[in-house]
Design a protein around this nucleic acid. Structure first.
Length: 104
DNA sequence: TCACTGACCGTGG
DNA sequence: ACCACGGCCAGTG
């Protein structure tokens, strides 16, 4: 695995419970060497790495749950977020900016 | 080996 | 406000 992928996993694992972030923010922290699309790719491969990565806390810039189909069931991602106190409406995070967590 | 694709985002027409 | 395009890396056929 390349460094930037490990870097992404490390960052995602730092996301506090009840918070969410977006692909662009992660790409920004990792550096200009990667783009948000690469972050998405990394998440696709994240489910087979250990320790587990809370990929459900990563959404796109509009707060849309674009990755929900990559979970076991189409609703699993939403359920995980709601279990942490984040409300979802029409596959979108309610008050996204309020729950947004900027990685560093 | 080459070509295409992907859980995205910002910019320009 | 809508549409198209470039960027960046690894896996797959």
């Amino acid at each position: 695995m390349s460094d930037w992928i490990q870097h992404i996993y490390t960052i995602v694992r730092k996301i506090p419970k009840g918070k969410v972030t977006n692909y662009g923010a992660i790409a920004d922290v990792v550096g200009a060497r990667t783009t948000s699309r690469m972050v998405g790719w990394a998440m696709n491969a994240a489910h087979r790495v250990t320790p587990p990565v809370p990929a459900h806390r990563v959404v796109n810039r509009k707060g849309l749950l674009t990755g929900r189909h990559h979970f076991g069931t189409p609703t699993l991602m939403q359920e995980l977020l709601e279990a942490e106190g984040i409300k979802i409406d029409e596959n979108q995070v309610v008050d996204f900016e309020k729950h947004f967590w900027k990685p560093e």
